[in-house]
Design a protein around this nucleic acid. Structure first.
Length: 595
RNA sequence: CGGGGUGUAGCCCAGCGGUAGGGCGCCUGCUUUGGGAGCAGGAGGUCGGGAGUUCGAUUCUCCCCACCCCGACCA
């Protein structure tokens, strides 16, 4: 059908109002799906596809349709404002980069198959960048020579590429994605800390202004780099990460990093080491039951391969190994569970192994083994265990440190309260990098005394597309998305019922125009051939914050129906008062995050 | 990379050794309009790709590819 406001004026709208003009439903490219896409299992994947926001091109590669793009732009603009307010300068760096650049820092090998690579026409190896530390460090190296040029915070919002082993859950883990990455450059540690704190505060502001409650969690800082690292996560049922939280003192940490304490096992007089027959017992649970001892009175043996070397790990039976902590403790590049043949080759008896008598293999133990006594441990022969094993009398380790996985129900390391846990999607990560990149690439500055130092760096990322997915994951109901108002593609969904009748068409068109003139973003369902039920269901599915209904019934009463997406019941307002009512609704919906 | 699953119309799916069907959507007309309407007519398919078996393969066999889920992986 005709679209008078668009006909012949496409260019005007593109320039006057950005790439996405206000929209009539009948002209919108995307279609809503009547049924759930069968392959999409998580809520955000299902709803983003079904509502017509995204379209899959390949595994982990999506097109973003106009509705999604509007939402992404809103998120980006919130990010821009906060980054600028924190002193950031926006720039843009290339996604296409020479592979050589990555070889200089050793990260070509570190990223391995996770990096997309290609050749240009001259056969020169190129990569698609997964992140931009190399490029930005060189850029700063060329532009900064003095402490007077520091500190500096630079950021970009750009497409990143990572050839993930397993893309999943729609926009949650993809191979091409929109990301904001920022980098700080400082002359000393306290200045780095100031930049880090400024970014942390900017992040809190960003998520609040997006209408999204966020968890800021202590995080593992990984192979490269410094002391501090925090993740920002949205709590969702389907998150990839587990966060340990303390309801009392607000200690919050990724389970990869989290510490915990657990009740001390009562110390007993040491008993003699005594062999017991345990036929067919291979697990801690089975052992504890068979011998009628608590699991905390047993020791668990786990076998790993660390950079090709077998490692024997001992931990108290009621605890589990945190592989990230173990990897860090070993300074290992590649850590994995040992396979059966490797266990046999090392002369170990799976199910009945212990450190007793072991000397020709690297032994790591969790600190938990030092606080208990008279443990049940493996006897290093089949179907046999020892009773009364004690550290260090009966066994030792080459390295004893905290390698235990924190679990809900254990106690907070700060205040002793019982810990809780939640699943979440990581949407941001901030990080003190230190001088790794500036040293390798020679980004130095002269201090006030004329001394040369490597610039101290930090990096700060937000996954924009993933934030959209996480927002939908966190905000939906049986009927569809419930968009937080600040990142909704449009603020209002104007539905015309019986729109073929002249009075309704006139009134709805007029209202559409008035709302736009008032600066309210409106999606106008002007379809003549869609039944009322279709329109209501589509409105619920898209989940815009405010729904307005113009119909013969409402017109007769001189009103327009108004309903917030999250409201149970609709209300009505006089025709003249719609704009104000919409503003009230939007303001009410955003009360908490505008505080 | 290991395990499991799926590829048939824009979407969801059925089917079968004899050359393809339903629902939704789409087009035309009529009728209808407050929570996924009705009637009539119509368009739309290299049945993921290749090879093999067969008189004949969408169907059986083998190989490959793509996608989904679980795991590994995720500075």
């Amino acid at each position: 059908m005709d679209c008078p406001r668009l006909a012949g004026t496409i260019h005007f709208y593109q320039f006057a109002r950005g790439p996405c003009p206000d929209m009539r439903f009948s002209r919108m490219v995307s279609k809503t799906l009547r049924s759930d896409p069968p392959d999409a299992e998580t809520a955000s994947h299902r709803l983003l596809l079904r509502a017509g926001l995204i379209h899959q091109v390949a595994a982990g590669v999506y097109s973003y349709l106009p509705l999604a793009l509007r939402s992404l732009r809103k998120i980006e603009n919130i990010i821009r404002k906060e980054m600028d307010a924190a002193g950031g300068q926006e720039l843009m760096m290339p996604a296409l980069q020479p592979e050589e650049l990555w070889e200089q820092t050793g990260r070509r090998e570190a990223f391995g198959d996770n990096m997309f690579s290609l050749e240009d026409r001259r056969g020169r190896p190129m990569v698609l960048a997964p992140t931009h530390e190399e490029v930005i460090t060189n850029l700063v190296k060329a532009n900064v020579q003095s402490y007077r040029d520091l500190p500096l915070i630079l950021y970009q919002i750009q497409t990143k590429f990572r050839d993930e082993p397993r893309p999943r859950a729609g926009l949650v883990r993809v191979r091409e994605f929109d990301m904001k990455d920022a980098y700080s450059f400082n002359a000393d540690e306290s200045s780095l800390d100031e930049s880090y704190q400024a970014m942390a505060q900017a992040y809190r502001n960003i998520f609040r202004r997006c209408g999204l409650p966020v968890l800021m969690a202590e995080a593992d800082s990984g192979a490269i780099g410094g002391k501090d690292s925090h993740e920002f996560l949205l709590a969702t049922n389907t998150g990839e990460d587990t966060v340990i939280t303390c309801p009392s003192c607000n200690y919050t940490a990724n389970a990869e990093k989290a510490e915990s304490t657990y009740p001390e096992v009562e110390a007993e007089p040491e008993q003699a080491l005594e062999e017991v027959s345990t036929p067919g017992i291979k697990t801690i649970a089975g052992l504890a039951e068979f011998l009628d001892v608590p699991e905390s009175k047993t020791l668990k043996a786990v076998f790993y391969m660390s950079d090709g070397e077998p490692v024997f790990v001992t931990i108290r039976g009621d605890l589990d190994v945190n592989e990230v902590k173990l990897k860090n403790a070993l300074q290992s590049h590649d850590l994995r569970l040992a396979e059966d043949e490797e266990v046999k080759a090392a002369g170990l008896v799976a199910g009945s192994a212990s450190a007793i008598g072991l000397t020709d293999i690297k032994r790591v133990a969790d600190v938990s083994i030092t606080s208990g006594s008279n443990f049940v441990v493996g006897a290093n022969k089949p179907d046999t265990h020892f009773h009364g094993a004690n550290y260090p009398r009966d066994f030792q380790a080459d390295l004893i440190t905290d390698i235990a996985l924190a679990q809900p129900g254990q106690l907070c390391p700060r205040c002793g309260h019982v810990l809780d846990s939640t699943k979440g999607i990581e949407v941001g990560h901030i990080f003190k990098l230190g001088t790794f990149f500036s040293e390798v690439l020679g980004a130095d500055f002269l201090d006030a005394e004329g001394q040369q130092h490597p610039i101290i760096m930090g990096c700060y990322g937000i996954g924009v597309g993933r934030l959209l997915a996480a927002a939908v994951e966190q905000n939906n109901d049986d009927n569809g998305i419930v968009f937080p108002a600040p990142i909704a593609p449009y603020q209002a969904h104007l539905v015309g019922l019986n729109i073929a009748t002249e009075e309704v068409a006139e009134a709805a068109d007029k209202l559409y125009q008035e709302l736009q003139d008032a600066g309210i973003e409106v999606l106008y369902d002007d379809r003549e051939d869609a039944a009322a039920g279709v329109k209501f269901n589509d409105a619920d599915l898209l989940g815009l914050p405010v729904r307005l209904v113009v119909s013969p019934r409402n017109l007769k009463a001189g009103v327009v129906e108004i309903k917030g997406r999250a409201d149970a019941e609709a209300g009505s307002v006089p025709l003249g008062g719609v704009e104000e009512a919409v503003r009230d609704r939007l303001a009410a919906a955003s009360e908490w995050y505008l505080l």
